[in-house]
Amino acid sequence: MKQALEKIGLAAKAELEKISDSAELENLRVKFLGKKGELTAIMKQMATLSAEERPIIGQAANSVRSEIEEAVAKKAAELKALASERKLKEEKLDVTLPGKAPRLGKLHPMDVVMHEIEDIFIGMGFDIVAGPEVEYDYYNFEALNIPPDHPARDTQDTFFITDNILLRSQTSSVQVHVMEDRKPPIRILSPGRVYRSDAIDATHSPIFHQIECLVVDKGITMANLVDTLNMFLKRLYGEECKIRLRPHHFPFTEPSAEVDIVCFNCGGKGCSMCKGEGYVELLGAGMVHPKVLKNCGIDPSVYSGFAFGLGLERVTMGKYGINDLRLLYENDLRFLDQF
């Protein structure tokens, strides 16, 4: 019997060698280890053995059984690994096919830049406020030290609704509302649409956006203005950004300045974009004119302030290298999809 057991063990091993799939392996397991299997058949004959032989043969049978079981388990693991490897190979994908996801929409590039600027100023403690676009002459001009027939009105060709009501030509009108409505300290930013009677071309539009900044408090200096401008523009354009201030004239600020930024295109060396100057004009700024403070009921002997305003279109075009302002209002999806 012992020989028979050994023979079964050897036969099982030999057959196991030839097996290549899990179905065959199962057949083999049943053939040798199953209830009707060869080993079981032998075990059934144990009863005919003597009491001395029984433990010896029993032990041998168990050892053969566990040998076969181990070998089968090992083979099963091998087959599983092989099958898994084959499956992985079959499941290879072309990873360059496009992905699938619900498409997200996009904000208009001007809105992206507007929020960036708003967030910078919120971080610096400025409230964001809005004002009416259809406006009284008083808020757009007179309170800002631009009386009727002032030549400065020529530089802002204005759309009129009545003799007294117009489409605001500058967001500076909001300065007056804010100073009338709030008490210093005032720190506000006011973005919005403004209107000028310019025919539309690559650099002009009858509608465009300005962003107005106003600070009024005791002891506000021009040095505060310079610092705020630097801080804002470095956050917007990066630490390396350089600006310069040039004396200029606005009726509602004194001193007034135009602020230039090192040319985006040439970095200051001078090129066709900056007409060889190395700088491009970015915004207008200045100390709030004492007359404007007075017009708004703020005592200029106690308070001072600064203000500046910049064109959102210009900043957006500079940032993205857009060379035609019309694109911003045509809403061609092929354009909008680029941002």
Partner: peptide
Amino acid sequence: TALGLYEIETFS
């Protein structure tokens, strides 16, 4: 934008 809409800017 999450709904897949693109923002436009038109004249008032």
